[in-house]
Simulated scan of single mutants.
Amino acid sequence: MATVEVAERLQPPSPVTRALIGIFTLWQRDLLRYWRDRTRIAGGLAQPLLFLMIFGAGLSPWMGTLGGAPVGPDYLQFLYPGIIGMSVLFSSIFSAVSVVWDREFGFLKELLVAPIPRWAIVVGKALGGSTTSMLQGLLLLLLAPFIGVRLQVGTILLLIPLLFLLAFSLSSIGLVIAARMRSTEGFGLVMNFLVTPLLFLSGALYPLNNLPTWLTVLTRIDPVTYGIDAIRRVVLSSAGVPQPVIDQLGVTLFGYPLNPLLDAAIVLALGLFLIVLAARQFARPD
């Protein structure tokens, strides 16, 4: 009987167990690297703060009240959710650079020959980048009292999954590109070319209503648009902005205003599609 018990304990874990262990290990590795790199945390906060001070403080006196109503938000309150989304955007996209570093230093080759499926590597990296980017965005919630936004506990609990879903989709975009990159220089060049239109077409810095038709189409293709719209609707609702004003400043699709749930569903669908695409990229021979 004892021999049988020892043999059962020595049996290799099942494929599902190996995949889960691999996902958790990669997620934990990225989280520890983020926590130990205080310069990365500080640098991730510096750029959003500059945007708030330059765009927010500089343009707010000229913009007045948005939404055409005295009870509408000022430009600084409108910009604040966009800056949170911008922080998640930069952190998520560039978190995939770790894949390129791992390839250059040989760690990725060890992962690819490890007894775990390659899709588990992709999911682990995506979850790691999503978690660190979500935390980076949550740090900006500390600025809410200075912006004039009152965040309640329920609001924060709503923002956490929204930030995570946005970060997950954007991390998946980074992984799709990083899967075929051989140098950090090439990855940085492609990312800089990609991030700028994603940011400026997302509505982070200005409302997306009354735009030319061709520009409206581009903003609706941008996945960041729906993530920032969901964050903005939750934040402005918590700030006491009436729902008609929020709908006027928010994103519409085929003439109908969206809501945080629909925005989240669109971002989630895109994230799942991209993670499958990234897994297919990693499954090809390196």
Rank of each mutant, 00 (worst) to 15 (best):
T3Y: 07
A46V: 15
V251W: 00
V4H: 09
P117F: 04
I41T: 10
A144E: 00
S172Q: 10
P61H: 11
I93E: 02
G85S: 07
P161N: 10
G148I: 09
P260H: 11
I173R: 00
Y256T: 06
P15N: 01
R284M: 10
L89N: 06
G128F: 08
V4P: 00
S91K: 05
R118P: 04
I266D: 04
N210P: 00
L50K: 04
L45K: 11
A96Y: 05
P212D: 07
Q77F: 02
V4I: 14
V123A: 08
R18W: 04
G227E: 04
W35D: 04
L141I: 00
A7S: 09
S171M: 08
L158P: 00
T196L: 15
G43C: 02
P223K: 12
L139M: 15
V71K: 13
P48K: 10
Y80F: 15
P70E: 01
A126V: 09
T213Y: 13
V99A: 03
E110H: 13
P61T: 08
I173W: 15
L274A: 13
L270K: 00
V276G: 07
F105E: 12
G174M: 07
R233S: 14
V217T: 14
T155W: 02
A7P: 03
Q243H: 12
T219A: 06
A239V: 05
P161W: 03
F168N: 07
L141Q: 08
F78L: 02
L138A: 07
G72W: 03
G271F: 05
L175G: 09
R182K: 12
D74W: 03
V16I: 11
Y226H: 03
W62D: 09
F200S: 09
S133K: 06
V217G: 05
E185L: 06
R232F: 05
V251Q: 00
L111E: 05
F94V: 11
L158R: 12
L112M: 14
R29E: 01
T184P: 02
L79F: 09
A114I: 08
Y206A: 11
I266V: 14
A278F: 02
T132S: 11
L170R: 10
P257F: 02
D229M: 02
L140T: 13
P285G: 15
I83L: 15
P145W: 14
V251D: 01
P13Q: 10
M86F: 15
F24E: 10
P242A: 05
S98T: 14
R18M: 12
G43L: 11
V190K: 12
Y226E: 06
P145D: 11
V241Y: 07
P12W: 09
Q152S: 12
R182Q: 13
L175C: 08
S183I: 01
T17D: 01
I121V: 14
A46R: 00
Y75H: 04
A69Y: 01
S92R: 11
R18E: 03
R103D: 02
Y34K: 08
I121H: 05
P61K: 09
G67K: 01
R36A: 10
